[in-house]
Amino acid sequence: MRIEYHIEGGDFSSGGSASSAVRKTLKQFNIAPLLVRRIAVVLYEAEMNVVAHAYHGTMTVDIRPTGIHVVIEDSGPGIEDIDKAMEEGFSTATDEVRQMGFGAGMGLPNIRKNCDEMKLTSTPGEGTRLEIQVNF
């Protein structure tokens, strides 16, 4: 089962709606609630990163019998230093993002903690690609 969602940069009112839709889909399957929560947190953090930092992006979700595979790709400023971005507490978020309760530099470390596989690549000035896998 493959679903693709569009994510608009800067649209904080709709931010999280793609993750919410995936969460609702997963709840219909016989998956442990805490596993659904873990996947939802990973997707929400990734989606809010696109909303907070990029111009626009897509979230492609592939639900397989063995797990969920998700690719989040955006057009945006990209990440200059990925190792630095993975550090807890490091953030380049704007004041607007911080006023929404995000931008504390916890997103990427939290994604890494909650998924089974994570691959982050970025070209500064072009965009970022995040590929994650959570096994059922």
Partner: peptide
């Protein structure tokens, strides 16, 4: 956050969305 109350002063749509995602 299972069976947990969120107490907050942050009053935005993302507060509700975060609660939804976290059960």
């Amino acid at each position: 956050m299972e069976n947990t109350i969120l107490i907050t002063g942050l009053c935005t749509l993302q507060t509700i969305r975060t609660a939804e995602i976290s059960n």
